[in-house]
């Protein structure tokens, strides 16, 4: 059964000291689904995302990518090489971009396919250039990240993740660090990806985007999944009081 899911988060818990950040989280994502994780700050959304590719190690529970458990094999923590190999299948886009500052835009996109996947240079270059055209940054290919606007940096971040041809993409508040007028250009790229059938898990505070693009919305609060459902159902008639409260506070964008 579980192999039908692209991503299966099974009973994941995580504590930071005395704080229970994630409490027995279960989340299944089918191929081509776009799942938006919503919830107030500190609800554990980003930690959950980081547990999926083991940037944070869950205290208990399992995360399966295409049916294969990440981080653990035969009951013990997997070695570096095996973990790194699994991570290559999961693209990640960071809140603060996390581009490699010493490399140009094109080199940022080519770096991991060349030096992790060890694919041939010409092929990787052609694909990277195509990806940069697609996110509208081909002209900036020889610029260093420091010379780009936030929106441009994040589009490079998305191209960099796509260059690995991941089976799953994780977005950790991809527009939270952007000036309001730059949010649209990043969301437009993500909307395209969703329409093309990329499997995506997105932590976001962009309610209008979630309502419009998500195939499913997962609402988290205080380390638990409180409610999950279609965007229509969640935004028009949330079934829990906590979700109602949340939408009252953040939901102004859901009015259009």
């Amino acid at each position: 059964m579980s192999t039908a899911y692209r991503l299966n988060v099974a009973g994941v818990s995580k504590r930071f000291g005395s704080l229970q950040v994630l409490d027995n989280i279960n989340l299944q994502v089918a191929p081509s689904e776009t799942v938006c994780l919503l919830g107030p700050s500190g609800s554990g959304k980003s930690t959950l995302l980081r547990c999926i590719n083991w940037l944070e190690r869950p205290d208990s529970g399992r995360v399966l990518i295409d049916g294969q458990t990440i981080g653990v094999t035969g009951g013990v923590v997997m070695n570096d090489r095996a973990l790194a190999a699994m991570r290559t299948r999961i693209g990640m886009v960071f809140q603060h971009f996390a581009l490699w500052p010493h490399l140009t835009v094109l080199q940022n996109v080519m770096e991991a396919p060349l030096h992790v996947l060890r694919r041939p240079d010409q092929e990787v270059r052609a694909e990277a250039e195509a990806l940069l055209r697609r996110v509208g940054l081909f002209d900036k290919r020889d610029a260093f990240p420091a010379r780009l606007s936030g929106g441009q940096k994040q589009r490079v971040g998305i191209a960099r993740a796509l260059a690995m041809k991941p089976s799953l993409m994780l977005f950790d508040e991809p527009t939270s660090a952007l000036d309001p007028e730059l949010v649209g250009e990043v969301l437009a790229v993500m909307r395209d990806l969703a329409q093309e059938g990329m499997t995506m898990v997105i932590v976001t505070h962009e309610m209008a985007f979630a309502r419009d693009v998500a195939s499913r919305v997962v609402f988290m609060d205080r380390g638990s999944v409180v409610e999950t459902g279609t965007p229509e159902a969640f935004f028009t008639s949330p079934s829990t009081e906590r979700a109602r409260q949340f939408l009252l506070r953040y939901g102004s964008a859901s009015s259009f």
């Binding site: 090489r81 290559t88 999961i90 960071f94 490699w100 992790v116 960099r160």
Partner: peptide, 24 residues
């Protein structure tokens, strides 16, 4: 963050150190 991105993209060990950590 860039080092964390290195981990997330499958860099590790000496390759991570040489290509991601050391140059900056």
């Amino acid at each position: 963050a860039p080092v964390e991105a290195g981990h997330a993209f499958g860099f590790r060990g000496f390759g991570l150190w040489r290509r991601i950590v050391m140059p900056p």
